[in-house]
Design a protein around this nucleic acid. Structure first.
Lengths: 182, 182
DNA sequence: TTTCGGGTAGACCAACCTGTCTACTTTTGG
DNA sequence: CCAAAAGTAGACAGGTTGGTCTACCCGAAA
């Protein structure tokens, strides 16, 4: 069905991710995509609905990407290697399907929407839970402490990579930290 | 000198931290503080300048707070305890001087300002470096891997606490992770 | 007493925001 | 082949933004 709808979502996601949702107006999405305003509002009844569609799109894409990256791992040690190897590659802008690295879209979006009960904030929580579930699904032991460690270090790495810019060193450091454990 | 200036900074910081900088207009700062617009623009030549003053204020307050929390520690193990104990207390809204917990002001602000060269983004980087320096100053061994571990887990904890809401459990988990190492 | 810095209230400006609307054109399926 | 669906351009409405400006007030120091 409608390819314009998909074009709008793709354009919105890229602009939102690169500039923040509040910094991007509807008109910028329209001029960038070359779609008419009327068309946008025939597919989405408000900007919020477009935002939700962009979040969903990012979530799907990121989940598929992560799942593929972890699928090769056949031991916990390999899961660690795959996970932080993938992150390092992302931080270094070598994962075209995820776009130019600018932190985690869901962390960034949460920072912009203060109302914790809003649909947007709820979806961000949902995303993080799903990512955790994906990682858990690839670990052999179901040591909850290991899972928490991976998730916490992953979040720390993403934020630090975004803020400092030295993302690849950060990801490598995470692997050092984790391989130094029993 | 001028107490109005300080009142403006305090009001702006609270509003910015609780709602995000782009969501708060100058007029909201004015009505909340009860100060006239003319007065604001006699102290700050633009909103950006007010934003910078708010960032500086937050940085000073947070640094002093952290320094005080870590000053009691006399061993690396105690530094870990003090650090994540302080974070747990912050996450649980038991640190009035830091206000109601809503993540890290600098991480949130970085998410809103995409230009990495902007004064705002530079200050956020500076803040994180300073915090790292404070932690390093209280560690006895100068094991860089330990320092990195603490900083990464700290960022992960802040982000996760903000996104999921279960902050105190997260901080406790970090301590478990760290005490389980040699 | 006069002068002046710091303050107030609020009208005003240009730019931008989301969202609606009219009027017209293109695409596509039965 | 023609009707319905999907698209276009862009004016418009009503509100908000950051920022400027005029006109006035007050208290303290020279």
């Amino acid at each position: 069905m409608s390819q314009k709808r998909q074009l709008l979502i793709d354009t919105a996601l890229e602009l939102f991710y690169n500039n923040g949702i509040n910094s991007i107006g509807i008109n910028e999405v329209l001029t960038t995509s070359g779609v008419a305003k009327r068309t946008l509002y025939s597919h989405f009844k408000s900007k919020d609905e477009l935002v939700m569609a962009a979040l969903q799109q990012r979530h799907d894409r990121f989940s598929r990407w992560l799942e593929a990256k972890l699928s090769a791992a056949s031991s916990d040690r390999e899961v660690i290697g795959c996970l932080f190897g993938a992150l390092r590659s992302w931080f270094g802008n070598n994962e075209p399907e995820l776009g130019n690295f600018r932190g985690c879209f869901f962390i960034n979006t949460s920072a912009e929407f203060s109302d914790l009960d809003s649909e947007v904030a709820q979806f961000c929580r949902h995303h993080k839970l799903e990512v955790r579930r994906i990682i858990a699904g690839h670990l052999h032991s179901d040591d909850p402490l290991l899972l928490d460690t991976l998730c916490l270090l992953k979040e720390g790495a993403i934020v630090t990579a975004h803020l400092t810019g030295s993302g690849e060193a950060v990801a490598a450091r995470c692997m050092e930290i984790l391989t130094q454990r029993p």
